[in-house]
């Protein structure tokens, strides 16, 4: 049984890494997003292998279900970025390489030297993976992080709306989206009437 779990682990780990490599190497950015979803999925399977059921389901719900949708919509919102013919390597790639290698080293060096990881903060032998334990931990030890999480989610929601319609933040009255679209239309029309921008508008 242990051998079987080991084999499954190696297959999953190999697939996760391969999918990760595909994310950064494929030319088409939509394909990169799909490979990212594949790697999220195999990470969920990895959690299941560690008998962390709840976290595995959350991984599928949040990352595979929600975050990937967000990533795909963000790509589709941008205009003409299929990634074809775009240089994939950033100019200062070596800085990213150093940071990534350092982060990886922080994990791998203690593992290689058989460092004893502090698994439980209180030394209790509860399995944190079980849903009941997570629920009670939220209400007792991790109460403050739990409440802060709701503030974080609030900031994310409000921030996204402000960024999506940044013109509104300068006004005192809250405009509805319909009014905002109408204002944008009017501004675009006034731009179109100007002779200098006319050429670029039609050529697009």
């Amino acid at each position: 049984m242990n051998i079987l779990i080991m084999v499954i682990f190696v297959v999953l780990a190999a697939f996760t890494l391969a999918a990760g490599v595909m994310v950064v190497t494929v030319k088409n950015i939509i394909h990169a997003a799909l490979w990212l979803i594949a790697s999220f999925f195999s990470v969920a399977a990895m959690y299941l292998l560690m008998e962390a059921e709840f976290i595995a389901i959350v991984q599928v719900l949040v990352y595979v279900g929600a975050i990937s949708i967000l990533v795909l919509f963000a790509i589709m919102l941008t205009r003409h970025v299929t990634g074809e013919g775009v240089r994939q390597l950033y100019k200062r790639w070596w800085i990213a390489l150093i940071v990534a290698a350092a982060l990886f080293g922080v994990l791998i060096v203690p593992t290689v030297f058989n460092y004893e990881w502090a698994v439980q903060p209180s030394g209790a032998q509860i399995s944190i993976a079980s849903t009941v334990e997570i629920g009670t931990a939220f209400m007792r030890e991790y109460l403050l992080p739990f409440e802060v999480a709701s503030v974080l989610l609030l900031v994310a929601l409000i921030g996204a709306i402000v960024i999506a319609f940044e013109e509104r933040s300068t006004r005192r009255r809250v405009l509805t989206l319909a009014e905002e679209v109408e204002q944008r239309r009017q501004r675009n029309e006034s731009l179109r009437l100007a002779p200098t921008t006319h050429a670029s508008e039609t050529s697009e």
Binding site: V62, G65, A66, I69, L70, L77, A149, A156
Partner: peptide, 14 residues
């Protein structure tokens, strides 16, 4: 679409 997706993510995590 993006705003809907983002609201969905926030309430999904909730």
């Amino acid at each position: 679409y993006y705003l809907y997706a983002l609201a969905f993510v926030v309430f999904d995590i909730e």
